[in-house]
Amino acid sequence: MAESAASQYVDQFSCSVCLDPLKEPVTIPCGHSYCMSCITDYWGQKEQGPPYRCPQCRESFSQRPLLKKNTLIAEMMETLQKTSLQTAAVECDVCTTEKNRAVKSCLQCLASFCQTHLQLHYESPAFMKHKLVEASRNIQENICHSHGKPLEIYCQEDHQCICNLCMIDSHKNHSVVSVDSEWASKKKELKEIKLACQKLIQERERGQREISEAVKSFKSSALETMEDIEKVFTELICSLEKKHSEIKEQIRAQEKTEIDRAEELHKHLDQELTELRKRQARELRNF
């Protein structure tokens, strides 16, 4: 079952830049994932200056996002790739001349079969109860080393796959479920984790946008305030210069008025002094 799921999901975790399975996966703020080297090279191109864009959704970022390895996806890719390798090009164990590709492996027969030789498992009552799984190179990994039975049961207490005999032997009274049931549960859990991660990424992205908008608003407000202050100081300086000029003109006008008055008084005193001297001279002659 795990091998079947791997073949279905491995293509979903491919890098949209190189189109290969993700290597050192990183997730950027918009939620899309890429190989570390692919997105680094993509943003490192000369024409890829700020703003930096997502190759898929084209969302832009004013600053280059910090890239950190997505551990969850990395572990998933490692598991999926290992399982995919197990199922790749498995040959039929029954074919004698030209080996056909195996489509199923039997845990009871410990062999893999092509579509033709597999028919016996569907048609013969003796083989119908055999446990068939996706074709695998390492079929022995699905067999209990102690009892030689298929590992069809999962022990939830010891977190391992066991066979029917293990369940009544070393795992007696343990909480157990079928492997298929456990895999379905793990798949559901993985989906929930993925959704939680996407939600967390969206929340962090929203927070990042809010901070960016707040910084932009603060810068805009600060610039507007600086412009207002500059305008006020310019007007104040102009007003002071105008007042300074008016006061200088008033002082010059007052100075001219006082000088003119003083000169007029000085002229009048000269005339009086001249008359007094003439009068004095006449008095002296008559005396």
Score class of each variant (00 low, 15 high):
267 K>A: 14
241 E>P: 04
216 K>V: 10
122 Y>A: 05
216 K>T: 15
40 T>Y: 02
110 L>F: 04
43 W>H: 09
227 E>L: 12
204 R>S: 08
45 Q>K: 12
86 Q>W: 05
98 E>W: 02
268 H>K: 15
56 Q>T: 12
163 C>Y: 00
265 L>D: 11
139 I>V: 15
261 R>W: 04
160 Q>R: 11
106 C>R: 01
168 I>R: 13
218 F>L: 09
251 I>D: 07
219 K>F: 05
236 L>M: 10
151 L>C: 00
149 K>Q: 12
62 S>G: 09
149 K>C: 04
286 N>F: 09
11 D>L: 01
28 I>K: 07
286 N>Q: 13
26 V>L: 03
252 R>G: 03
95 C>P: 05
200 L>V: 08
206 R>Q: 15
71 T>Y: 03
171 H>N: 04
112 S>E: 02
184 A>G: 01
83 T>W: 09
253 A>L: 09
163 C>V: 07
115 Q>N: 07
59 E>D: 04
73 I>L: 11
240 L>F: 12
88 A>N: 06
12 Q>P: 05
89 A>S: 14
43 W>N: 00
139 I>H: 00
42 Y>P: 06
49 G>N: 14
43 W>V: 07
161 C>M: 10
65 P>H: 01
83 T>V: 08
274 T>Y: 13
210 E>K: 14
148 G>L: 01
172 K>H: 11
99 K>H: 07
5 A>M: 10
239 S>T: 11
45 Q>E: 13
147 H>C: 04
122 Y>G: 11
117 H>S: 00
203 E>M: 10
193 I>R: 11
168 I>E: 11
21 P>E: 04
235 E>N: 14
199 K>A: 15
269 L>K: 11
134 E>I: 07
91 E>P: 08
108 Q>F: 07
201 I>K: 03
67 L>T: 00
274 T>V: 07
193 I>H: 05
147 H>P: 05
207 G>H: 15
6 A>C: 08
278 K>M: 08
2 A>N: 13
44 G>Y: 06
250 Q>W: 09
73 I>T: 09
261 R>H: 10
31 G>F: 08
275 E>S: 07
13 F>L: 13
42 Y>A: 03
255 E>Y: 10
243 K>D: 10
175 S>P: 05
153 I>A: 05
135 A>Q: 02
191 K>E: 09
33 S>H: 08
184 A>T: 09
68 K>G: 03
160 Q>F: 02
169 D>M: 05
234 T>S: 10
92 C>V: 00
187 K>T: 12
180 D>E: 08
269 L>I: 15
162 I>E: 05
64 R>V: 01
10 V>K: 04
156 Q>H: 11
37 S>Y: 07
166 C>K: 08
68 K>P: 00
210 E>M: 08
226 M>P: 01
285 R>D: 09
89 A>Q: 14
235 E>F: 04
56 Q>N: 01
274 T>W: 11
218 F>A: 12
93 D>F: 07
273 L>A: 10
207 G>K: 14
94 V>Q: 13
184 A>R: 12
65 P>D: 00
67 L>N: 06
236 L>K: 15
232 V>E: 08
47 E>M: 01
260 D>C: 05
231 K>Y: 04
160 Q>P: 02
188 K>T: 14
204 R>Q: 14
257 T>K: 12
20 D>H: 01
67 L>W: 06
281 A>M: 11
108 Q>C: 01
6 A>H: 02
160 Q>S: 07
190 L>I: 02
122 Y>W: 14
190 L>A: 12
65 P>I: 06
